[in-house]
């Protein structure tokens, strides 16, 4: 696991590269070896950043997917089954309102989608990392971020994912995706990152 700071620092540089990558569907520099291992650092650096898309954009079949496509994959969760050569990863993120931990209908659909991905890939497990924005009390936010991640876990279990395949981690307000102290940054920071491994 890398710190979100690293992510943030790399974000600017990566964004340009990724936009190009996605558009051209050419293998990224990190994908030279074609193996998952080579890609790992790149994936990690991008954790939670998505393409920088704001919540509400990138709507696909009524499902919000804030994913990064690296290399030759298709924007379809089933590609996760082809990890060795498939070289594609999603960093889906579920966003929340201030002091909220209830999933919107849209977010429920998003989580359902990844629940299905997990059902289709029984060897995979999922980490649900809960976060809040920086406002209010840090310890309350630690609990709130866990509540959010557990809300996502509940939906996954509802759609059949075994509890044992789900790991919930709360980071509270400690690992912001955006470092500014603005409404826009706060919107991006109130989130649960779904990490399928």
């Amino acid at each position: 696991m890398t710190t979100s700071l690293k992510k943030t620092f790399l974000l600017a540089a990566m964004m340009a590269a990724l936009t190009t990558l996605s558009a051209c569907s050419t293998p990224g520099g990190g994908a030279e070896g074609g193996s998952d291992t080579d890609l790992q650092p790149l994936e990690q650096q991008m954790d939670g950043q998505g393409t920088g898309a704001r919540p509400g954009e990138d709507v696909d079949l009524g499902v919000e997917i804030h994913g990064i496509e690296i290399g030759n994959g298709v924007a379809d969760g089933s590609a996760l089954g082809q990890d060795a050569q498939g070289v594609m990863t999603y960093q889906p993120v579920v966003y929340f309102g201030f002091d909220q931990s209830i999933l919107s209908e849209e977010n429920t659909a998003l989580v359902k989608h990844y629940a299905q991905v997990l059902m289709d890939n029984p060897d995979k497990t999922v980490k649900l990392e809960g976060h809040t924005d920086e406002r209010g009390s840090p310890e309350y936010n630690l609990a709130l971020a866990e509540k959010r991640a557990k809300a996502v876990a509940q939906v996954m279990m509802l759609f059949g994912v075994n509890e044992k395949r789900i790991e919930v981690i709360s980071f509270g307000e400690e690992q912001p995706a955006a470092l500014e102290h603005t409404e826009e940054a706060w919107t991006l920071n109130r989130r649960v990152e779904i990490k399928i491994h």
């Binding site: 696991m1 710190t3 840090p138 310890e139 630690l142 981690i169 709360s170 980071f171 509270g172 400690e174 690992q175």
Partner: peptide, 27 residues
């Protein structure tokens, strides 16, 4: 630490601190 540290709390004798550390990846 490279990971977050939160919520220091002093022992009443002022000799120790309890705190939250993410050094193992979680709180």
């Amino acid at each position: 630490s490279p990971k977050p540290i939160m919520s220091p709390s002093w022992s009443p004798d002022g000799k120790k601190l309890a705190y939250v550390s993410f050094e193992k990846g979680r709180s």
